[in-house]
Design a protein around this nucleic acid. Structure first.
Lengths: 342, 342
DNA sequence: GTTAGCACTCCTCGCATGTGAGTGCTAACA
DNA sequence: TGTTAGCACTCACATGCGAGGAGTGCTAAC
């Protein structure tokens, strides 16, 4: 069967109308709204074809039609034209102030996106491929306690408090700091070999134990960043869409969003690597979300810092708006980071 | 009207039965389950009295009874006996590992509590009354960039990256650190006067600007802790209770839980300061939770560190279990912190 | 003070009916 | 051959009715 331009127009009309109303669309409605100058009967014939092709479906006989997953897929792949972001969308909405923690910025962004799109959002914290130790600083805090600050590439800062038995003098501390920094700065986990460790410990003399603790902390810090946190926002927006709010669907989705680890598969790369990836219904590798669509985008910055951000909504979500908003947000995010990096 | 012991027993039976089933309780059921050797008719007479006293109510005529807010209030105030925690509740459930961030521990605890009780939980991050600056450390990180680590009482660590125009030599940095620590350590916000600030700036000479930035950061750090973050967990548990899951109630509650700032009023102290505080229905100062009950507990540790934790569930929540679990959790938390402090 | 008996209330469920939206099909038309 | 009008048909949904049942409220007897 051929998908001629009129069929496309009708599919388009069905999707757009269903996006707005959430109700099955009848032939009469399309005849009026599509712009095509044909009668409902003609539309019905075409709809019958579209149904045969698996692009639309009826919830029950004698009801209007709603798009199927395949219909949406066709729409986003071939028919969707990207909107230009209207100029009045004040970009300084997301004015990024001097934030000390990247995580806070990301959470803020998730919230903003949820608010703007009226869908749920999720963000992975940044990961740092080739994560390196940039700088380390031990300071005396209390008696017998050291504060260790570990800075990784991408200016991620981790704090650790070390409970060393004894008090160190200023000179000893200075020597220890020099020792650690001289030997470790700029190295990734793979580059810190046992030989190196032994050598440092050797040189540290009586402070070998402290060196061990510090190395453990470094390993833990780098490790923690390799399976980054997932943040979500706007989960309650799900309730705004009747097709999700009814039954157990909403509660399952909300549970999944709370159990953030279960969202990881959604972010997994699948073959082709694009800026924007759209998953519809069963394409989502999370059972509870088979009635949803997910749009994800990658952010990638200097220093190998990268992560993902996703928007979760009903299948009838406004894909154009979501894609446009996401692209714009990515742009702003990159800008902000660039400024921060240089 | 007198509330004799039999009436109490009946109210008790109604509440317990309603806690289990969520269905209105009839006189026949009570007659069987209460242990009282009286007929349903007698129970009915007593129930009629209880209704007059405003302790129970009927959803509609010719239906069983459910407790009113006042009924619950009476129950928790006078009739509830606290259970001893069964010994088999393995306490090491909440084995607290060396966590660098208190926040993470709290979030973990919230999750655990939500999981154990099957209600929603919320936790405020710790606040530090009489928050003092304990220690400050500037280090060179990149060219023209300083890493400032600020430690407050209670070992809260804040990181800031300062963008200073120039590079400082090691000696200059050392001098600056000494200057700041000698003058500021142990002081609270109120004690850092303009006179003091001027004096320090004066002494810092060409680094007066850096001192300003650092002071700003200190102020921000202390400020940030005075309105601490609120974490929630287990929000989807709400769906397990039909009286909350139906209608808009669930969605409103979930929204409130996501909008964490709106939870602050719940934690506000009201007059008498107890370890455990129970709010029922309209007593909760948040509109969307008028169908819920909230049990809050305070944790308070050395160094003026304190915060609150709350459990949100339906009015028919198992108050004994919640109170017992909360007390036990507080105990463990205090223990963990003590170990951490000493 | 307690109990049995009984009428009464009101929710719930199943069933039949009516209505309306929307289709599918056929036949006529361009 | 594509398009259209007309019409019967389907099915969800709302409404109304009646039976069943849980549970009360009241009265009278114990």
């Amino acid at each position: 069967m051929e998908l001629d331009s009129r069929k496309k127009a009708i599919l388009n009309a069905i999707i757009r109308n269903y996006q707005e109303t959430g109700e099955p669309v009848g032939s009469r409605t399309i005849s009026k709204l599509s712009g095509l100058q044909v009668s409902p009967a003609t539309i019905r014939n075409e709809m019958s074809d579209l149904r045969e092709m698996g692009l639309i479906a009826q919830p029950h006989t004698s009801a209007g039609c709603i798009p199927t997953d395949r219909g949406y897929r066709l729409y986003v792949d071939e028919m969707m034209e990207e909107r230009q972001l209207p100029a009045d969308t004040s970009r300084d909405d997301m004015l990024i102030k001097r934030v000390d923690r990247v995580e806070e910025l990301l959470m803020h962004m998730a919230k903003l996106l949820a608010c703007n799109t009226k869908y749920a959002t999720m963000v992975t914290g940044p990961t740092y491929s080739a994560n390196k130790l940039k700088f380390i600083q031990l300071s005396r805090m209390d008696e017998g306690k050291l504060l260790g600050v570990i800075v990784l590439s991408g200016n991620v800062v981790r704090n650790n408090i070390f409970d060393v038995g004894k008090d160190l003098s200023d000179e000893e501390l200075l020597r220890l700091n020099l020792l650690l920094n001289n030997n470790l700065n700029g190295l990734s986990m793979d580059e810190i070999t046992l030989a190196l460790i032994t050598r440092i410990k050797d040189e540290a003399g009586e402070f070998g134990d402290i060196v061990s603790s510090v190395l453990d902390a470094i390993a833990a810090s780098i490790e923690a960043d390799s399976s980054p946190k997932v943040y979500t926002s706007g989960a309650p927006n799900i309730f705004m869409y009747p097709e999700l709010a009814g039954g157990d669907t909403a509660s399952e989705i909300i549970s999944t969003l709370e159990e953030k680890d279960s969202l990881r598969p959604v972010f997994a790369d699948r073959g082709e690597h694009h800026d924007i990836q759209i998953l519809i219904g069963d394409e989502i590798p999370v059972e509870s979300m088979k009635d949803c669509s997910v749009v994800t985008a990658s952010y990638e910055l200097e220093g190998g810092v990268h992560g993902k951000i996703g928007i979760i909504g009903p299948k009838r979500m406004n894909y154009e708006k979501v894609v446009t908003t996401l692209k714009d947000t990515m742009f702003q995010l990159n800008e902000a980071f660039k400024k921060d990096e240089e």
